[in-house]
């Protein structure tokens, strides 16, 4: 894992990145992703094929911290790869390894909460308010949370207090996206997987997500898929799905 580049390097990125750095420096560290255990996520020669040609083949990488950029054109398998890494889909061959505290493999139940995931097809309960949604997932996962904590988490992703108490089915696309980010970070996962998190977000929403990513990459690993190169601020690693190759950034 290479160290992060000097802060000046940020200047070479597009405008969005500068906003990103500024917010990152002023991040609220006490908010989301507070306590994390060092965790390694490793893909070991993953392949996935849907009837026909393989989407990607023999893909391997490993990350314990920092930002991993997942790049590739539409249809190159970014979403599928991230779902496999999040334990939501199976690879055709290969496996995903999660370890902590010096090579101790995580148990299945630990894995479930150690990897946070949000993708475009993640939906939460429309009949419930944002707070009720998060409260349910915390309770059913065996980690109940106080309402105050949930309110803080939702405020961190920029949802207004009034909005948190409305049913999710009334939300705009952007508000739903913010709620997805809150869901992904709900258990302060050491590994955060975000699949196109900027979709449908306004400037403020994108800043919020940049902030989340900056916080998370300092405390653990962020795997980020995006079609916009500007979203990848000096990634420590880059996984290019064009031909299922991987190279160090």
């Amino acid at each position: 894992m290479s160290a992060r580049g000097p802060p000046e390097a940020a200047a070479s990125y597009a405008g969005g990145i500068r906003v990103f750095k500024r917010i990152a420096d002023a991040r609220r560290a006490d908010g989301i992703l507070r306590r994390t255990v060092p965790t390694t996520i490793a893909a070991e020669s993953l392949s996935k094929a849907f009837s026909g040609a393989p989407l990607f083949r023999d893909l391997s990488f490993s990350a314990s911290s920092g930002l991993v950029a997942i790049a590739g054109r539409n249809g190159s398998g970014k979403t599928t790869l991230l779902k496999i890494l999040a334990g939501l889909a199976r690879p055709t061959s290969g496996r995903v390894r999660l370890e902590t505290d010096g090579a101790r493999p995580l148990s299945t139940s630990e894995q479930r909460l150690a990897v946070g995931w949000a993708g475009p097809d993640l939906a939460l309960y429309g009949e419930f308010t944002a707070i009720e949604n998060l409260a349910f997932f915390r309770r059913a996962a065996g980690r109940p949370a106080s309402e105050a904590e949930l309110v803080r988490r939702l405020a961190d992703v920029g949802l207004a207090e009034e909005a948190m108490r409305r049913r999710v089915e009334e939300y705009s696309t952007g508000m739903k996206q913010r709620l997805r980010i809150a869901f992904a970070t709900l258990f302060d996962p050491p590994v955060l997987i975000l699949d196109e998190p900027m979709v449908a977000l306004d400037l403020d929403g994108r800043e919020t997500v940049y902030r989340v990513i900056e916080t998370a990459r300092k405390r653990g690993t962020v795997l980020l898929a995006s079609n916009d190169e500007r979203d990848f601020a000096e990634p420590e690693q880059r996984v290019d799905l064009a031909g299922a190759r991987r190279r160090e950034a």
Partner: peptide
């Protein structure tokens, strides 16, 4: 149908979901 299955599978072991 509502797409909430992913969120459920991501956070809660199948046995609890089934039992509930």
């Amino acid at each position: 149908e509502t797409g909430t299955g992913l969120a459920l599978r991501k956070t809660i072991p199948a046995v609890y979901v089934l039992a509930g």
